[in-house]
Design a protein around this nucleic acid. Structure first.
Ligand SMILES: [Mn+2]
Ligand SMILES: [Mn+2]
Ligand SMILES: [Zn+2]
Ligand SMILES: [Zn+2]
Lengths: 136, 136
DNA sequence: TAATCTTTGCAATCGAGTTGCAGTAAATCC
DNA sequence: GGATTTACTGCAACTCGATTGCAAAGATTA
């Protein structure tokens, strides 16, 4: 596992106190985090600073965002080597019971056969249902 | 093609003036519509009435909603026989150039192999890129 | 008809996201 | 080093899509 400093260096994001703590928090969580989640976890860091940090991170491919339909955008750290290309596409799972959203890095995404002359750039694939913990 | 009245009858939604005109509008558009789109198109119908109509429609599977990442939820009429089950799943395409979102009813969705003991209920699959019109 | 339930329009509110601005810190240039 | 420029941060204010309370209007039922 890389340290926060290493990740930021690779992704060419200048290291600051806020950025380190935000990235550390994201790395420590198994579920994707909303701005509010992060704000709650980092009591002394301002929301707009976190917000701008997330924007910067997303721009530089440190993290990617997920629209899971909960009304709050979620963020998750990109896998090592990820470039947010179509090849890095993966499903996200949203548990309708416990509200947890996370990346399904291990579930392969089949090639999508778009109609004639369409060009794929990115995708937001959210699968919803019950996670193993809630499906009992 | 079924009429608005027929659709509402089948889906057990009582027919009213607002509902008819909202459904008619949705049927007339090839791209999925946001609340604002509908509000703009139906100048004399109140937003909250349209909003509640959409909620009712969604509840009764007249329409389904799409989170395309644009910040506004889009709505599209369900295909005939659709029950919004996993079997009715389909991709949605969002054109990053012209901002159009629509259902890709013809692109098959492969079976998603979820991790052990996960249960699939629904999904929001949005593919983003350039539509044929914009990919030139 | 009278009582009851549903739908509608209007105004107010909510809340996630975003921005302006001034102060602080860091990087760059003499 | 010290001056200048550039980047980051915190606070408050604001935007805007979504949602709700409420009373009037309409439809249904007894
Ligand atoms: Mn992910
Ligand atoms: Mn659709
Ligand atoms: Zn769960
Ligand atoms: Zn287009």
């Amino acid at each position: 596992m890389q340290t926060e400093e290493e990740i930021l260096k690779i992704k060419k994001v200048k290291n600051t106190a806020v950025r380190t703590v935000v990235l550390r928090h994201l790395l420590s969580q198994e579920k994707a985090q909303s701005l509010k989640d992060i704000e709650n976890a980092l009591a002394y860091t301002d929301r707009s600073s976190i917000f701008r940090t997330l924007k910067k991170f997303e721009e530089n491919k440190v993290i990617h965002s997920i629209e899971d339909g909960s009304g709050m955008t979620k963020y998750a750290v990109c896998a090592k080597g990820c470039n947010c290309d179509p090849k890095d596409l993966h499903y996200h799972f949203y548990c309708t019971n416990c509200d947890k959203t996370f990346c399904l890095f291990d579930v392969p995404i089949p090639k999508i056969q778009l109609p004639e002359n369409f060009k794929l750039q990115q995708a937001n694939m959210v699968v919803k249902g019950l996670c193993d913990n809630c499906n009992k």
